[in-house]
Write a protein that binds this DNA or RNA. Structure first.
Lengths: 259, 259
DNA sequence: CGTCTGGTTGATACGACTCAAATTTGGTGG
DNA sequence: CCACCAAATTTGAGTCGTATCAACCAGACG
C-alpha cells in the first residue's frame, strides 16, 4: 500500500552500451562502429570511491572512457578552497586529446566506485584514423563538454543558490537519461552536500538549507543518493534551464549510418 | 620631467603575426607553415565595437581568426542577466570545429573594433589535411581554451571579488604578452567596468570599489583603457594566479620544425 | 550645448558565509 | 545483531561581502 521507498542501487535500465548510446545522440552508428567502441573496453580499471584518478601536474598518459560510476574534475587553491569544475558520467570520454599537453591543469577524482576503460594514444589514433563517423562524434562530445563548461560559468556567475542547485540537478538528470541511466525524473545522485557545495561555489551549510527549499517547493526529492525530480517543467522554469547547450538533439543526423 | 601619461592607443610591439606567435608558444613552425597561416587572412571582416558577430541560436558557418581587437563570448538569461564566458584576443581561433554543431549556444560580440579573418570549412579542412603540425597546434589551442574555461569556473566559484578581478587582469596580460601585444606590465585594456562585472559575476558598482582597492594597494593602474600592472609577483600571489593553466611553455617542443 | 556612456559615491538590504554543536546515517568489526 | 565510529546532514545565531537603489560627475560626441 505504502509508496515504494526510493531505495535500490543503480538503475540498470540499459546496462552497458552507454558510450554508443551517448554518441548516438549525435549521429547514428553502424553495428560495425558500435563493435569498435565495445572493443575499447578491453582494458578496464576500477577506482574506489573518493580516490583520485589523476592529479594536477601529472603527465597524462591515457584516454579514459567511463563505463560506470560518477567522477569529477576539480581544482584546488593554495588557501584550500576546492572547485569541482565538471562531472563525468557513464559514456563520457575523458580528455580525448589530452596527450597533446604534458601536464594536467586539474585533478580527476572518483565520486563513486568508477569503472573506466583505459585507452592508449595508439588505440585512439587507430580508432580516429579508421572511423571517421566516430571521430566526428568524439568531436561533438568535446564541443559539448566545452558548452557545458560555459554553462557552468554562467551558473556560478549569474544564478542564485536555488537556481544553481536546481540547474545542476537537471543537467545531470538529462545527461543520465541520454545514456539510459535515468527515467521518470528519477536517477542515482551520489554527490554529497559537500560535493554540491564545491560544484556550485556555495558552502555545505547553505546547500543544505537550499535543498530544503527545493524540497519544500515540491520540486525534488533527494534521499539516500536517489534524486526524484517531481516537476521537471516547473524546475526548468525556476532555474532557467535551457537544454540547448547540451546539444543532444541528433545534430549530426545528416551523417547517420544506414545499417 | 613628469611621468609619461598612459595614453596612446594600441601598443604595436609586433604588429600582425599574432597567430603564428601564439601557436609557436606550443611548437615552432616552419616558414612554410607560417606562410600558410598568413594565407588564411585573405578574407577579412571588420566588426564595429560593441556589435555582435553571432548570436545564440545562429547556425555557425565560418571559423574566425582574430587579427586585431578584443571580443567576447557571452550568454544571457531570461531575467536579463548576462555572463561573459570568455574573452578572445589577437591570434585566437574562434570555434575551430564549430560547424559540427548546428546552433550556437552562446553569442559572440566585439568589445573593441574587431578585425577577423573569415575561414570557410573547406579552407579549414584543407589546412588540417595538409599541415599536421598546425593541426596539432590548433588542438593545443582548443585544449588551452578549455583549460581557461575551467579556470574561469574556479574564479567565479571560489575567489573573492578582489582576487577575481586581479586574476582576470593577469590572465589577459599574459595572453597578450604571448602574442606580442603587451610588455613591461602594460597593455591595452578596453573592458569597461560593466564588462568586468559581467565577466566576474559582480555588479559594476562593486567592480568599481574593488578596482579602487587594487589601485590603493599599488598593484595596478587602470586609466583610459590602459592597464599597468605595478607588481606582477605580488598580484599573482594576492590572486593565487598559477600560470600553468595557460600551457604556454612550449609543451609541444618535441614537434618543433627545424628550418 | 545637451545627451549619453562610463565612472564614482553613499546609504541600506540581503544572500550567503562562519562557527559551533547536535543529530542522523552508513559502514565496520566484534 | 549490536556497538561503535566516521561521515554526512541538520539546526541556530551572528557576521560579512556583495547587491541594490539613487544620485552625481566627467568626458566624448554630435
Amino acid at each position: 500500500m505504502a509508496r515504494l521507498p526510493l531505495v535500490s542501487g543503480a538503475i540498470p535500465l540499459r546496462p552497458e552500451p552507454a558510450v554508443a548510446s551517448k554518441l548516438e545522440r549525435f549521429t547514428r552508428l553502424s553495428s560495425d562502429e558500435r563493435a569498435a567502441l565495445a572493443q575499447l573496453a578491453r582494458n578496464v580499471r576500477v577506482i574506489d570511491a573518493r580516490r583520485d584518478l589523476m592529479c594536477e601536474g601529472d603527465e597524462p598518459r591515457f584516454v579514459h572512457l567511463v563505463l560506470d560510476g560518477w567522477g569529477c574534475r576539480y581544482k584546488t587553491l593554495p588557501d584550500g578552497k576546492r572547485q569541482i569544475v565538471g562531472i563525468f558520467l557513464a559514456g563520457d570520454f575523458c580528455d580525448v586529446n589530452v596527450f597533446i599537453l604534458n601536464h594536467m591543469d586539474h585533478s580527476v577524482g572518483a565520486v563513486t566506485r568508477l569503472k573506466v576503460a583505459v585507452i592508449t594514444p595508439d588505440e585512439m589514433r587507430a580508432l580516429t584514423a579508421e572511423r571517421p563517423r566516430i571521430t566526428q562524434a568524439l568531436w561533438w562530445q568535446e564541443l559539448m563538454a566545452m558548452s557545458i563548461q560555459r554553462e557552468w560559468t554562467l551558473n556560478l556567475g549569474q544564478r542564485t543558490a536555488y537556481e544553481r542547485l536546481g540547474h545542476l540537478m537537471i543537467e545531470l538528470y538529462v545527461r543520465l537519461e541520454a545514456v539510459g541511466r535515468a527515467a521518470d525524473g528519477r536517477c542515482d545522485f551520489p554527490l554529497t552536500q559537500n560535493d554540491l557545495a564545491d560544484a556550485t561555489g556555495l558552502t555545505a551549510v547553505h546547500v543544505n538549507r537550499t535543498l530544503q527549499e527545493l524540497r519544500r517547493d515540491r520540486l525534488i526529492e533527494l534521499e539516500r543518493k536517489q534524486l526524484q525530480i517531481l516537476d521537471l517543467p516547473r524546475l526548468m522554469d525556476a532555474t532557467m534551464f535551457n537544454p540547448n547547450y547540451l546539444h543532444l538533439n541528433r545534430e549530426g543526423r545528416h551523417l547517420d549510418a544506414n545499417d
